[in-house]
């Protein structure tokens, strides 16, 4: 699976420049970088919700699932939110159990807490199979226990569906725990990419080393 090179410019200022990349099915790619480094813009362009200056989508015929950073809960029950893309009740129950939100299935989703909404949104996305899944900070609002449950679900989903998963995260620990490959962005430029051992433990670029030193190896 191939992402073609693309860039993004706002008001004449280039905020993102991506040289293109081949993605392997079944692998988890963690996208890391400081705030404002272009991680979310990268995710949005890949998901097709933000246009690039020139072609940047994965593949026009590929099914791409995307979980935005700001989770939106539709004004209906948690269960109905999960059943928006498919009517598989058993799958919905399984996902709600995995993310410990089964007791909230009848509650209006727009009245859930931040952490509950994050779990509902992740479960809602995982109702369907996609060729590529893009998750933008899926566990940012979750506590440690639910983060562990969510990470297990992400790993299981990737293994079972064989999809390519792109995980935007600010947590280096999370990248270490579940990623296979790491993409490091610095000021809108993909500075380094490789296996997590290469990028997180033996970085080749000074910006990556500086970032890791600052945020803790």
């Amino acid at each position: 699976m191939n992402i073609q090179p693309f860039s993004k410019t706002y008001d004449g200022v280039r905020v993102l420049s991506f040289p293109g990349l081949d993605l392997e099915p079944g692998k988890i790619y963690a996208v890391i970088g400081a705030n404002g480094s272009g991680k979310s813009t990268f995710a949005k362009i890949l998901a097709g919700v933000l246009p690039a200056d020139r072609k940047g989508r994965i593949r026009d015929d590929a099914a791409v699932g995307y979980l935005p950073q700001k989770h939106y809960a539709f004004r209906m029950s948690t269960r109905r939110n999960l059943l928006l893309s498919t009517n598989e009740e058993a799958r919905a129950a399984e996902l709600m159990d995995a993310l410990q939100i089964r007791h909230l299935e009848k509650k209006r989703a727009d009245r859930l807490s931040g952490g509950e909404t994050a779990r509902m949104a992740l479960a809602r996305l995982m109702m369907k199979r996609y060729d590529t899944v893009i998750l933008d900070e899926p566990t940012a609002a979750m506590d440690m226990e639910t983060t562990a449950a969510a990470e297990k679900l992400i790993l299981d989903y990737t293994r079972q569906t064989g999809c390519t998963l792109i995980l935007v995260t600010h947590s280096l620990q999370q990248a270490r725990r579940i990623a296979d490959e790491v993409l490091f962005f610095h000021k809108g430029v993909l500075k380094e990419t490789g296996t997590k051992e290469q990028v997180l433990f033996h970085p080749s670029q000074p910006e990556t080393r500086q970032f890791l030193d600052f945020y803790g190896r």
């Binding site: 949005k44 998901a47 097709g48 919700v49 099914a63 791409v64 699932g65 995307y66 979980l67 935005p68 700001k70 989770h71 939106y72 539709f74 004004r75 209906m76 928006l84 893309s85 949104a121 809602r124 996305l125 369907k128 996609y130 893009i134």
Partner: peptide
């Protein structure tokens, strides 16, 4: 609310008609 609804619906692979229906449901 439209940008968030559109982004979420697109992320779930929902079509234009379903996205519009969801948007209307949010407007009751």
């Amino acid at each position: 609310i439209a940008p968030a609804v559109r982004e979420t619906a697109k992320g779930l692979g929902l079509g234009g008609i379903k996205t519009f229906a969801l948007l209307c449901n949010e407007c009751v």
